[in-house]
Amino acid sequence: MRDTDARRRAPRIAPGWWFVAPALTLIVVFFVGPVIAALGLSFTDFDLYALADPRAARWVGFRNYARVLHEPLFWQALRNTLYFAIVGGPLTVAASLGAALLVNARTLRWKATARAVFFAPFVTTLVAVAIVWKYLYHPRYGLLNWLLGHLGIPQIDWLGDPHWAMPAIILLATWKNFGYNMLIFIAGLQNIPRELHEAAALDGATPFQRFRHVTIPMLAPTMFFVVIVTMIGYLQLFTEPYVMTQGGPLRATTSLVLYMYEEGFRWWRLGVAAGIAFLLFILIVLFTLLQRRISPRGAV
């Protein structure tokens, strides 16, 4: 009697929970937990000794942060990362928009082919194409300097010159990634009502005026969103410098994530590396807030 009562009262878990349980468990154990642990880790001196015996790690308060913030290399990595994101993000989006306008041109045939061609670089393996570009950038034998030579531009030591290494990486990233945003812009362009263009044309607007006064304002919310999202992605720069320059020359391409990787997984200073990771996180939060602040108007 009491037994059945208890059974009846035992809370029945809604089936929905069973469906989400595997995903939630994995996300909590392998993502949320580690993120919280990273914060804790950043307040310890966890290093190679602690790796052998975690009890060797001690609480050091903000010492890792103080140390990192006094490290010139951190500031250089921050500058490099911001350079890559702030120049590379808009450049990539501009290329995306250009490609989208091309593919979307009303009189263009082979639209699907053009779209596939522009999108192909995006699906390639970054490590592989970074190696390809490394050779394209070769000062003597590289295709790029040879092509530029035809335009009368003297040899550039793309990856060997501290002033050119980051622009070279930006160029590779632009090539690799513009196809992704292009798809978003194509969708956005197709959402602009035909009548707007027709009305403007009837009023005598030239194609350029229509682009300036119809297309751009209609796309602006998407464009802003896409620029910020691209920049946030670019703040996580790692593979290109790892493969092409190892962060050089003269640390000109050492990004925050590469710096974190070196501290954490080369020198096993996990506490310090966790501090760098959190500083990166703060930077990304700032960019996200910027996006929320400036793209309001209920537009996106």
Binding site: V20, L24, I27, V29, F30, F31, V32, G33, P34, V35, A37, A38, L41, P54, L235, Q236, F238, V257, M260, G264, F265, L270, A273, A274, A277, F278, L280, F281, I284, V285, T288
Partner: peptide, 23 residues
């Protein structure tokens, strides 16, 4: 739960990597 999860999208994966390696 869904909203909390969506907020997680803003966290870069690199933040989790060091403790994840220890795990």
């Amino acid at each position: 739960t869904f909203r909390a999860m969506a907020a997680g999208l803003a966290i870069p994966v690199q933040v989790a990597m060091l403790p994840l390696f220890l795990l």
